[in-house]
C-alpha cells in the first residue's frame, strides 16, 4: 500500500483509538491558555504592516508577568515545531500594553535576506511563510507558546486575500449570549446547548498549494472554565454542542465560556467570555 495512505490511515485510526482516553479535553480551561492569535490582515502585501493580538485565558489568582514575541521570515513548519528556518533572522518584537504587536515583515525580511531598494532576488519565492511566535508567562510559573504563520507576498499583493470568519452570534440555552450578561444556568448533570452561528458569506473559496479549488471549512472551538463540552470542536457555519453539568469545582458559582471560529487558514474570530451560572 502506498506509504502516505498507510500513514494517513494509521494516523486516523490511532487518533480514533485515543478518542476514548481519560485525559481532560482541550475545551476544559484548567490553566493558562492561549485561545487565539488574531492577525490583521491575514495575508501581507509587500510593505504592509500587520497587527497580531493575543487572546489569553488567565486563571483566577494568576497574573501575566511577561508576553514575548518573536518574528521569523521563514517558518520551518510543524515538522520542526515552527522553528525559524533562518535562525539568525529571528528578531524579538516589543509588545504594546495590551500584549499585541505591530510589525512590518517586509522590512524585516529584507534586512534578513539582504536585499534593499525594492529589488528582490529571483531566488526569493513569491510567497514566504513568516511565523510570529508568542510566549506568555504568569506569576504561577505557567508558560504557553503559540504561533501564527502569516503569508508574506514578496512581489505583489495577494490576489485573493484571506478574510477572517465573521461570528454572527452565540446562543446559550437558546438565548443569544452577551458578554457581561449571565446566560441561563447550567444545573448539575444538566445540559445547556451552545450554538455558534458564522456568517456564510465569510466562507471563502480558494486554490490551495496543489492547485485544487477548496472551500474553507469553518471550525468552532469551544472553551469553558466549568462543566465540559460534549464536543469541543464543531465543523460548519451553524453548529451546536452541549455544555454538560459535570466536574464542577467545589464552590464554583459560574463558568466562563469562549468560542473561537477558525477558517483553518489563519483567519480567527473570538467571542466571550460568557458567564454561565452553575446550579447545585
Amino acid at each position: 500500500m502506498n506509504r502516505p495512505l498507510a500513514v494517513s490511515l494509521a494516523t486516523v485510526l490511532l487518533i480514533s483509538a485515543g478518542c476514548t482516553d481519560d485525559f481532560s479535553p482541550q475545551s476544559d480551561l484548567l490553566g493558562l491558555r492561549v485561545l487565539a492569535l488574531v492577525a490583521d490582515p491575514l495575508e501581507l502585501a509587500p510593505g504592509a504592516s500587520v497587527t497580531v493580538r493575543p487572546h489569553d485565558h488567565v486563571p483566577a489568582g494568576s497574573a501575566v508577568v511577561s508576553q514575548r514575541w518573536t518574528f521569523c521570515p521563514v517558518s520551518a513548519g510543524s515538522v520542526a515545531a515552527y522553528a525559524c528556518a533562518v535562525p539568525q533572522c529571528e528578531v524579538e518584537l516589543a509588545p504594546a500594553a495590551d500584549g499585541s504587536i505591530t510589525a512590518n515583515p517586509t522590512e524585516l525580511v529584507a534586512a534578513c535576506l539582504g536585499f534593499t531598494g525594492g529589488s528582490i532576488p529571483p531566488s526569493v519565492p513569491d510567497q514566504l511563510l513568516t511565523v510570529f511566535r508568542y510566549r506568555v508567562a504568569t506569576d504561577q510559573a505557567e508558560t504557553r507558546d503559540a504561533v501564527l504563520q502569516i503569508p508574506q507576498w514578496t512581489r505583489q499583493p495577494p490576489p485573493d486575500p484571506n478574510l477572517p470568519p465573521v461570528i454572527l452570534g452565540v446562543e446559550i440555552g437558546g438565548i443569544p449570549a452577551q458578554v457581561g450578561v449571565p446566560t441561563p444556568p447550567l444545573a448539575v448533570d444538566g445540559i445547556l446547548p451552545v450554538r455558534l452561528l458564522i456568517d456564510p458569506a465569510s466562507v471563502q473559496t480558494y486554490v490551495d498549494a496543489a492547485g485544487v479549488s477548496q472551500t474553507e471549512t469553518m471550525t468552532g472551538y469551544f472553551y469553558t472554565t466549568g462543566g465540559t463540552f460534549s464536543a469541543g470542536i464543531t465543523s460548519g457555519v451553524d453548529t451546536t454542542t452541549d455544555l454538560e453539568g459535570t466536574g464542577f469545582l467545589p464552590g464554583q458559582a459560574t463558568a466562563e465560556v469562549w468560542v473561537v471560529a477558525l477558517d483553518l487558514r489563519g483567519g480567527q474570530a473570538l467571542v466571550g467570555p460568557f458567564t454561565v451560572p452553575l446550579g447545585q
Partner: peptide, 16 residues
C-alpha cells in the same frame, strides 16, 4: 519534549 499551539488550526503541535 514540548508543544506549541498553532493558532491557525487550533491544535497543539508536538516538539520532538
Amino acid at each position: 519534549i514540548g508543544s506549541v499551539f498553532d493558532s491557525a488550526t487550533g491544535v497543539f503541535v508536538p516538539e520532538y
